[in-house]
């Protein structure tokens, strides 16, 4: 219960949403955050070494 109250204090979900408005682009901060996280995760997925890959190459 204490942990739930702690998270609720960090992320107050009972208020009006925040929006980014730039020219024709109108997106909520929550959706924008998810898009940025997806791009960061995609780049990480491309460049981070896959576990065990080096070991397999050495075994070849």
């Amino acid at each position: 219960m204490i942990a739930l109250s702690f998270f609720a204090a960090i992320l107050p979900l009972n208020t009006l949403g925040h929006y980014i408005h730039w020219h024709f682009i109108y997106i909520s901060v929550a959706n924008f955050t998810v898009v940025i996280l997806m791009i960061v995760t995609f780049v990480a997925a491309l460049f981070l070494p896959f576990p065990g890959r080096r070991r397999r190459k050495e075994n070849k």
Partner: peptide
Amino acid sequence: PSYVASWIYVF
């Protein structure tokens, strides 16, 4: 095949 060892397939 060895190229399946990629994060893209984890997703």
